[in-house]
């Protein structure tokens, strides 16, 4: 068995497979179907300082090899998370990481500070790339100044592993990655969804309530692999890759492009066991190719 233990800054993972925020609930929704101990970790739903109702229905439409969503950070707020969800998930047999989002820099910092106090949450993923909210979200992640200001503010109050999730809806993602590295990020994860749109031609209206939404699924995988490859060459901090990973071969592409770990997202909707299947598949691939550790292939494609 190859060694697939993974380290993302101070965060030790049993294997390099995480579940992407917003695609795996709080993990408990999948507990009947998989052994959560087989995962590297779970990144729970985007959490904000205040409760958010999210956007109106319809929030989702199927597209070629993917889907568009405009959920809009629907969640009950960080206080609800701390009081009612954290007690249920803190004993899960895997790492639990919280995805943190916000409308203002102050909100991001206050939410992160609240989660800093939770013993069993070793890391946060800072979402500066949600395309489905009118204020904040992606607005911070598409400029170097915006990204740096959020990351700096959160770094001041958050003392554990800080992962920053990047948007692909930018001209130069490597530049943004370097900026958040300089601002104190311990790792970056990429890519969030690509901004897209679909139209119902019979009703002559957008298929999503917000008109636009985030595209995910295998349709975006080549874009994601390219982004990971560009960012991994530009920064010294670890890169977590995601975007349309459906199987172990897809994951291997991301490792070769320079990712130290990966996230499985939309695949969870089609196959709720996808994440553990991929974790096992990575191991099998390494064994069958004579690799003793995952490290041997990380960034091997220059």
């Amino acid at each position: 068995m190859a060694n697939i233990c993974t380290q993302i800054a101070g965060l030790q993972l049993r294997n390099p497979v995480l579940t992407a925020s917003g695609t795996f609930g709080y993990g408990t929704e999948f507990a009947d179907l998989i052994n959560l101990a087989d995962l590297g970790g779970i990144i729970v739903k985007g959490t904000t300082l205040h409760p958010r109702e999210g956007n109106d229905y319809p929030r989702m439409t199927e597209t070629p090899s993917g889907m568009l969503n405009c959920v809009g950070l629907h969640n009950k707020g960080v206080e609800h998370f701390c009081q009612h969800i954290y007690p249920k998930i803190k004993e899960l047999p895997t790492r639990v990481i919280v995805n943190v989002s916000g409308s203002t820099i102050e909100d991001y910092a206050a939410c992160a500070a609240r989660i800093d106090a939770l013993d069993r949450i070793p890391a946060i993923e800072l979402n500066i790339s949600c395309p489905n909210v009118r204020q904040g979200g992606m607005a911070f992640g598409v400029t170097c100044e915006g990204a740096a200001s959020v990351v700096r503010a959160v770094r001041e109050v958050y003392h554990k592993t800080l992962i920053v999730k990047l948007s692909p809806n930018v001209t130069n993602i490597a530049e943004i990655a370097q900026t958040v590295e300089d601002a104190g990020a311990d790792a970056v994860s990429l890519i969030n969804t690509l901004l897209g749109m679909a139209i119902d031609i019979e009703r002559r209206c957008p298929r999503l309530s917000l008109a636009t939404g985030g595209l995910s699924g295998p349709a975006i995988r080549p874009v994601a692999v390219r982004c990971v490859w560009q960012v991994a060459k530009a920064v010294r901090i670890p890169v977590i890759g995601l975007g349309g990973i459906m199987n172990a071969d897809d994951a291997i592409e991301f490792f070769m492009a320079g990712a130290s770990a990966i996230e499985v997202g939309t695949a969870n909707f089609i196959d709720p066991t996808a994440s553990v299947r991929i974790a096992k598949g990575i191991n099998d691939w390494l064994d069958s190719h004579g690799c003793h550790s995952l490290q041997e292939i990380v960034g091997c494609v220059s």
Binding site: G25, G54, N268
Partner: peptide, 16 residues
């Protein structure tokens, strides 16, 4: 309602 996961994870099928 249109839905993806069926498990309460994607939050796409919401009704007001």
């Amino acid at each position: 309602n249109l839905m993806a996961c069926g498990l309460g994870a994607c939050l796409c099928c919401v009704e007001k």
